[in-house]
Design a protein around this nucleic acid. Structure first.
Length: 481
RNA sequence: UCCUCCUUAGCUCAGUUGGUUAGAGCAUCUGACUGUUAAUCAGAGGGUCGCCCGUUCAAGUCGGGCAGGGGGAGCCA
């Protein structure tokens, strides 16, 4: 009985010809004691249910309130009104669940802010903006798997609990079953004795699946991971989360250029997929963004609308240049000469500040930029050393409005070079014996990258805050829901 | 973690140089109307002005501390 319902999205695609249907969903608005805008989450477009005057009990109509859930049966007829092509002429209306309008926290007519909706995140999917965002998120996630599957990659589940703390990718969350009240077993020097812990050693939540990914790549040829990642950094920004989802492909026999090609093709593919399958939601989000930007001063508004921006990205080559070239552009820029940068461009070897990256992406090139070959001092130990002795085969992709969306590199496959670098950077080689073994037995050139999924969702939906593109955000001092 | 701004009704916000009973729109409730499109019209209820301490005859308003949130920065994806 219940599964006989028709989805509103399918219904709206049909022609009204007095077909008998059952729909179920949640009330968005109830106008004129007669017209119910019903939404079932399949689309932002509501079905107009008409409860003919006098046909239904006063007591029943009283219960049709914002977000009450209904089962309605009736006939689909051409609408007499102007805003929609069809109505559902209700024959029976059943309240599945009441919603007390005095207590329900979201009144759509009040234009609740994104910040407020974050406080009632358990209901925010019932708003058009969040419904659109999370349907697009779904499409992008699905496209990730589709892309790699079509290319023959193996989806490898790397561990969420890891023992190595040698990756240097940031602060970690400890995983333990030892008591936290001070009664944990101690060593002679009073440090915690983790041999007594669940895993018999100190463990953490993963900050990256890359090292394990490399183990897969050097057997399957190409793998990707797509899973949760955890960073215990005290980062309070619109683009950081303590728990986020990362996609990490790793490919044997690829060099840095292959790596950049893969990343660019991948990004374009998943955007195109969302454009083809979720056009309505993207149109809605594009409009939402335009509305929001109307309130900004002219010079702060985007030059392109959301749809326009996405089309531009999928139809144009990303700009590729080396770190060294980027430093030159920045040094020669009028911005730098007029001392408009907060951090002056001092010269080769400096780490790029986000204002520098933004200048390159948003002012100079006005498109996504792939920066390659960074000084080895500012990059991780596993990146392949270039012949110049100064740089490593690193690659960052910077997206307009978001900043770094991809970080990757060709990996150092030469055992001696790798261990030498680990020594210089105080990375314990003993702990990573299994990682180094790939360089001892059949080592191959290989490369990979990490793409922050939420940042990608931000880019595609135009949402300014990363907390609004993950269903239940985890950030410092915040883990409700 | 640093800089900066904010916190007043269920929501979004006004609130003057400190001064009597703190306002509006929307939401909610009651009534009217009935092919509406954020329906409309009339009326009603709704406040420990984030929390604590201080200055003052008097604090929503001034000062200090704390908490939460926004924007920017760092770390990064």
């Amino acid at each position: 009985m219940f599964n006989k319902r028709v989805k509103i999205k399918e219904l709206l695609a049909q022609e009204p010809q007095h077909q008998e249907v059952t729909v179920m969903g949640w009330v968005r608005t109830f106008r004129n004691n007669q017209f119910i805008a019903l939404n079932d989450g399949s689309t932002n477009n509501n079905l107009q249910v008409v409860a003919e005057l006098g046909r239904f009990d006063e007591a029943l109509l009283r219960r049709i309130t914002s977000s009450a859930s209904l089962r309605v049966t009736g006939k689909i007829v051409p609408s007499l009104g102007k805003g929609q092509k069809m109505d559902l002429q209700a024959e029976t209306i059943e309240i599945l669940g009441d919603s007390d309008p005095d207590k329900y926290p979201i009144q759509l007519k009040n234009r609740p802010t994104l910040e407020y909706l974050r406080e009632v995140a358990h209901f925010r999917f019932r708003t058009n903006t969040f419904a659109a965002v999370f349907r697009v998120r779904h499409a992008l996630a699905f496209a990730v798997h589709k892309f790699f599957n079509e290319k023959g990659f193996v989806y490898l589940h790397t561990p969420i609990i890891t023992a190595s703390d040698a990756e240097g990718a940031g602060e970690m969350f400890r995983v333990t079953t030892l008591p936290v009240d001070g009664s944990a077993p101690r060593n002679e020097d009073n440090s915690i004795n983790f041999r007594e812990d669940f895993f018999g050693r100190s463990t953490n939540l993963t900050v990256s699946g890359q090292l394990e990914g490399e183990l897969g790549a050097t057997a399957f040829g190409e793998i990707y991971t797509f899973g949760p990642t955890f960073r215990a950094e005290n980062s309070n920004t619109a683009r950081h989360l303590a728990e986020f989802w990362m996609i990490e492909p790793e490919v044997a026999f690829n060099d840095l250029e292959d790596n950049a090609n893969l990343a660019e093709e991948f990004i374009k593919y998943i955007i195109r997929y969302a454009m083809e399958h979720n056009r309505e939601d993207l149109d809605f989000l594009s409009q939402r963004l335009a509305e929001e930007e109307k309130q900004l001063p002219q010079d702060k508004r985007s030059e392109m609308g959301l749809i326009e921006k996405l089309e531009f990205v999928i139809n144009n080559q990303f700009e590729r240049l080396t770190y060294t070239e980027a430093i030159e552009i920045l040094r020669e820029s009028n911005y730098n000469k007029k001392k408009k940068f907060q951090f002056p461009v001092t010269g080769w070897g400096m780490d790029l500040q986000s204002e520098h990256e933004r200048y390159l992406v948003e002012k100079h090139f006005k498109k996504p930029v792939i920066l390659m070959d960074y000084p080895k001092e500012i990059k991780a130990f596993y990146m392949r050393q270039n012949d110049d002795g100064k740089t490593v085969a690193a690659m960052d992709i910077l997206a307009p409005g978001i900043g770094e969306i991809v970080g990757g590199s060709q990996r150092e496959e030469r055992l001696d070079k790798l261990t030498e670098r680990m020594g210089e950077m105080d990375i314990p080689t003993e702990e990573l014996w299994w990682y180094l073994d790939t360089r001892r037995f059949g080592t191959v050139p290989h490369a990979g990258f990490g793409l922050g999924f939420e940042r990608m969702v931000q880019f595609v939906t135009g949402m300014g805050n990363i907390r609004d593109v993950i269903p239940f955000p985890r950030t410092p001092k915040s883990a409700e829901f």
